[in-house]
Design a protein around this nucleic acid. Structure first.
Lengths: 137, 137
DNA sequence: AACAATCTTGACAAAAAAACTTAGGTATGT
DNA sequence: ACATACCTAAGTTTTTTTGTCAAGATTGTT
């Protein structure tokens, strides 16, 4: 099990914007440099963040990005789900599609559902204001 | 983030053996059929389970596999880690290797470490006896 | 109005990982 | 001896992930 770099990049990018929440817009190139993310790859990710209402964009010279909401109101879950689709480690669909007809007696199902829930709970309870606070000691 | 089929297959295979803990050895072909896993792929997985001391093998005619311990003493964690290497969604190594020098101020680090811990806790607390009980209502 | 910085989009390519197959070999109960 | 079933290594195919390329649209600044 692993988290894709998409999600890692995304979290870092949003964190970078959170740091500048009270300031000017941040150009994509700036985020790219500070967080060490390939520019054009980051562009793809940030499109999703915009469509999800996490980020606002300003075009033209002096343009850039800003968080659409207060860091307190953006959770790690929001960002991750937005970039990874559903963050659940295992989708039941996989069992169904692969012909596992004994859904009710499937050991995996029990395990993965609990894992899904525990991951979700953990990540939902983590907002970017908290992260800022924790990293600014 | 997703769990590989390796881990899913592995859990199902061990569960199959857990069901037969008090009976005879189970041939790999039988496991394969009952859990719908490609035989020779399963062989690769079960080698690891054997080396990890989770499973015992008996060669020759009438051979097969048996759990090496009581189902109560085998956790989902044991099986998963054995097949996936470390189950942590994100290794800090990835940050270090990719040149992220500000380990101390990395938003991701905080998040992923909590995710790792919560996943680990969940899966460690789940043993195959419990699974048997829960699925035999 | 022209320019340059910046966002926007879609298609493509390279790389890595995962899943599965092939082809043999080895041990052992009957 | 022989059939059964485990054992191993190497290779192939497929899928997923990651990253690149190229061209376009928008808008503040001069």
């Amino acid at each position: 099990m692993r988290v894709s770099t998409r999600a890692r990049y995304g979290v870092n990018a949003v964190y970078e914007l959170a740091k500048n929440y009270d300031g000017d817009t941040v150009a994509i190139k700036t985020i790219s440099e500070r967080q060490d993310i390939p520019v054009q790859y980051l562009e793809q990710l940030i499109v999703k963040l915009r469509k999800a209402g996490i980020v606002n964009s300003m075009r033209g010279a002096k343009g850039g990005y800003k968080l659409a909401k207060h860091p307190k109101n953006i959770s790690a879950w929001d960002v991750i789900v937005c970039l990874e689709g559903d963050f659940a480690p295992v989708h039941c669909k996989q069992y169904v599609d692969s012909g596992c007809e004994r859904e009710e007696t499937c050991a995996g199902k029990v395990i993965w559902e609990e894992v899904n829930q525990s991951v979700r709970k953990t990540v939902e309870n983590m907002n970017f204001q908290d992260l800022l606070d924790r990293l600014e000691e």
